[in-house]
Structure formats: structure tokens, C-alpha cells
């Protein structure tokens, strides 16, 4: 019992470190897309680690925590995808150090293909 609690506390601590790094990335990153990536990736891992830690500390809660984890795994990537897509469609510029923009190239190729079909 004691060792489980200690292990759980350490996992909880590492999860909170990841969440802190994610929020640091929100401040430090140059443009919207990098910020979305930092905020989503780090905070998903951090949240999952904290849920695992809580499950080790109080084992009777594991079923609810599992439901929470599944919900976070589904919703977090989808919401960040929607955010990134919407901001790209709204025309928010990428930072100057970006080297490639595949979504723009994909959209252009799609448009050209449609025009080719019409003519």
C-alpha cells in the first residue's frame, strides 16, 4: 500500500511537470500552430500521467479515471486539429522560420485538380 502511494505520487509529479512544460510552451512558442502543438501534446501526456498517479494512490477510483482517460484521448487531439484547421482557414500567418506548409500545397493541388476537371 505504502509503496503504491509513493509510486503514484511520483507519477503525479511527473505529470504536473509535463503540464507545466506545456504551459511554458504556450508562452514561448512563436506562432499559433506551435502553441497548439505544445499545449496539446504535453498536456495530454501530463493529464494521462496524473490520472495514472491518482489511480495508483486511490485504487478504488480506477474505473472513473479510465473513463476520463478515454474521453481525454478522444477529445484532445480532435479539438487541437479543429483549432489548427480553423486558424489556417482564417488565414493566420505561420512564423517566419517555418520551412514547409503542406496543407496549403494540398489545397492548391486540390483546386488545380478541380479546375482541370471542369475544363
Amino acid at each position: 500500500m505504502e509503496t503504491l502511494e509513493i509510486i503514484g505520487a511520483f507519477i503525479l509529479l511527473s505529470g504536473s511537470i509535463f503540464i507545466f512544460l506545456g504551459s511554458l510552451g504556450l508562452v514561448r512558442m512563436p506562432d499559433v500552430y506551435n502553441r497548439i502543438q505544445a499545449g496539446t501534446k504535453a498536456s495530454t501526456l501530463g493529464t494521462l500521467l496524473s490520472l495514472t498517479g491518482i489511480a495508483l494512490m486511490t485504487p478504488s477510483w480506477w474505473s472513473r479515471l479510465l473513463l476520463l482517460a478515454i474521453f481525454i484521448i478522444i477529445t484532445n487531439p480532435v479539438s487541437s486539429h479543429v483549432l489548427a484547421r480553423a486558424s489556417h482557414k482564417a488565414g493566420i500567418k505561420l512564423s517566419k522560420r517555418t520551412v514547409s506548409d503542406k496543407y496549403k500545397a494540398y489545397n492548391q493541388a486540390k483546386e488545380e485538380a478541380e479546375h482541370g476537371n471542369e475544363s
Partner: peptide, 18 residues
């Protein structure tokens, strides 16, 4: 109206019942 992406459609089908 712009169509939403495939990922959002699939995920919403999964999430709505829950």
C-alpha cells in the same frame, strides 16, 4: 458554408452517444 473535416465528423459520431 464550409464542410468540416473528416476527423471531426468521425470523432463526433464517436462522441455524441457518450
Amino acid at each position: 458554408l464550409q464542410d468540416s473535416s473528416e476527423i471531426l465528423k468521425t470523432a463526433s459520431k464517436l462522441l455524441e452517444p457518450i
